[in-house]
Amino acid sequence: MSSNLQQQLQQIIDNKTKPRGALGRLEELALQIGLIQQTTRPVIQQPHIVVFAGDHGIAKTGLVNAYPQEVTAQMVLNFIHGGAAINVFCRQHQLTLRVVDAGVNFDFTSNPTNLITAKVGYGTKNYLTEPAMSVYDAIQAIDKGRNIVNQIAAAGCNCIGFGEMGIGNTSAATLIMSAITGLPVTEFTGRGAGLNNEQLETKINTLQQVFEKHALNTLGEQPIELLSRVGGFEIAMMAGAYLEAVKLKMIVLVDGFIATAALMIANAIYIAEKHRTLVSGWTTLTDHCIFAHTSQEAGHEKILKHLGVSPLLSLSMRLGEGTGAALAMPMIQSAVNFLNEMASFESAGVSNAEHQTPNA
């Protein structure tokens, strides 16, 4: 990363008509976005939210979920028809929404124009008894995620946020986070879509059993194998989407709990492949990402602290769907706008107190 560019950007930011640092996180965002796009005049073009949907075999047991598996397909139809929270926020902020069938246990036969069909399978297998998917399927899902983002970028988008839908996917995210961080499953296990105390205890016990069955403590540095054991098609596809978005120098917004788990998979892949691919100069994918919000889902704040990142918003949300990313998008635009449009002390003819010589 060019230290010269960083110095130029910081000088431009500091010379705007304001006290140094007075715009707080917006100044940090402007600097980060300029470095991502490698320019002192960044732009936001055709911002998108992409929601990946997939089913999880464990959800058929009811051991980790409050809602039946069928709700995944029902919510995808709600996205398609424009009735979900993410639809509302995307319309409000003029964001393009794309919904991806990564592996829903349903046939969307009407073939709506706003649904991307990339189905790897009709949901994963029950990882309580067998691996969730084959290694081949995990790789296929990652590649499809890369291709989807590549096509969106080719159409002119340079700013993207990812969301998800999948009954049971907080459990997959919990197992992934525990395996990669080495922290206990209990650190990340939450109520998901609304488990009561008894159901939460069952979920914790079930996930600890799964963790031990698949020896996940040995797979923290083997992201593809980890995905194949306990991942979801939507999580794998999102991981591929992150990798491609960073490769293309897009501005990437990370949503909530499951989206962060997918980023951790992507980051583990990036670290393993860094010597031959992606963007030189970035130590991890997190350098390239903007974290939209802190989810109320148990464990999300802990994982953000583990990653050493600070989210933009804290609204006690735990919906998923990319809603946090959609709400944070206007802040990204504001950071770019002040960098490009706000007058400098010199251009506005305003005295800069920091540059004045004190009276003798």
Rank of each mutant, 00 (worst) to 15 (best):
N267A: 06
N4F: 12
Y127D: 05
E187L: 07
S310Y: 01
I33R: 14
C159K: 01
I139M: 14
A245P: 10
L216S: 06
M264Y: 03
A348H: 08
V252T: 14
A268Q: 11
V135W: 04
G192Y: 01
A298G: 02
A172N: 06
G163C: 10
A118W: 00
Q6M: 05
K16Y: 04
V149M: 13
S228T: 04
I265T: 11
I235M: 13
D137A: 04
T96C: 07
L319R: 00
N359R: 15
N114W: 15
E27H: 02
V252L: 09
L23T: 02
T117P: 09
V279S: 12
A261H: 05
G54R: 05
M317T: 05
A59S: 09
L26F: 02
I142K: 13
N147K: 13
L77V: 11
N267E: 12
I176L: 14
V336S: 09
N205V: 09
Y122G: 11
Y122L: 15
S2D: 11
A59W: 12
Y67E: 05
A30R: 07
P19F: 03
T294C: 14
N150P: 03
N78S: 09
N105F: 13
I58R: 00
G299Q: 08
T284C: 05
S314P: 06
H288F: 14
A154R: 01
G281M: 06
E273C: 07
R91C: 08
V210D: 03
I167W: 07
H306A: 12
F162N: 04
A335H: 01
S316M: 11
C90I: 04
M264H: 00
M75V: 15
